[in-house]
């Protein structure tokens, strides 16, 4: 049976992994390649890099990181952050990324999803959706790191990106992100049931129970987490052992 995936996420700023709480007080957490190797050794199913580099001078650093990582870490690598053109997608894939994630650019230019997917294949294209609840059972899409409303319904947008050629959706609940209170299960379930492509749940993981709920109640195909792994609370292996104890299929 296909295993549910656990994906640690690394925020990368100017070539270094940073960690912080709610995007404040970013602290240096080390070398991205070393950290990726550590998660790989713990049994991570994939690794996602989110490039949060603000300065355009430093933007190419992520390419070097992916190149170095792809020479040492033999599991799928996803990169997101600052992808605006098909050429950006190609450069990241050529550097060794397996999937490229786009968020704001997909909203402002949906044709980018279609063009990139036609060029490199839908299996390489992830659309990241940041969603915030408006009323119970309704969620709105946000862009620009959660600062700007896109005026789109999250479930409608998920269906639309699938039709445009996305191969996977990375779904983040803005309400839960950084709270450690668990995934937004109704949101995760609504999106997972609305599309026929895999959905990665993100935002709010504080305990191993939260990871399990994301796949059982939320029906996510994969779960993404950052802080519970970065701060050493749990290893990826411990997380997988927990999921297995709950009857969830994992790779161990």
């Amino acid at each position: 049976m296909l295993a549910k995936r656990i994906i640690p996420c690394l925020d990368v700023n100017a070539g270094r992994v940073v960690k912080g709480v709610n995007f404040v007080e970013l602290r240096d957490a080390g070398d991205p390649v070393e950290i990726a190797q550590r998660y790989d050794a713990q049994g991570a199913d994939e690794i996602t890099f989110l490039d949060i580099t603000a300065s355009s001078d430093d933007r190419d650093l992520i390419l070097h990181i992916i190149e170095a990582c792809a020479a040492k870490v033999f599991i799928p690598l996803t990169v997101g952050g600052g992808v605006r053109k098909v050429e950006d997608v190609r450069r990241l894939l050529n550097a060794g990324a397996d999937k490229v994630s786009m968020n704001t650019a997909a909203v402002t230019n949906p044709q980018l999803v279609a063009d990139a997917s036609a060029k490199v294949g839908s299996q390489c294209i992830v659309v990241a959706i940041d969603a915030k609840q408006t009323v119970p059972g309704k969620w709105e899409v946000f862009t620009h790191g959660g600062r700007k409303s896109a005026g789109l319904d999250a479930v409608d947008w998920a269906r639309q990106v699938q039709a445009l050629g996305a191969g996977e959706i990375l779904l983040t609940s803005m309400d839960r992100d950084g709270t450690k209170s668990g995934f937004d299960i109704p949101l995760t379930r609504a999106i997972a049931d609305a599309v026929s492509i895999p959905v990665i749940a993100s935002g709010g993981v504080g305990t191993l129970e939260h990871l399990a709920a994301g796949v059982t109640e939320g029906r996510a195909d994969a779960v993404l987490a950052a802080s519970i792994f970065h701060f050493g609370e749990y290893s990826v292996r411990e997380a997988k052992e927990y999921l297995r104890s709950k009857g969830i299929e994992v790779r161990l």
Partner: peptide, 21 residues
């Protein structure tokens, strides 16, 4: 084929993406 389901009734997604035996 589209509409394949897992034993728990959930939809099997296509692409088949991830670690399988």
């Amino acid at each position: 084929p589209s509409g394949m389901t897992a034993p728990d009734g959930s939809l099997l997604k296509v692409p088949h993406m991830g670690w399988n035996e």
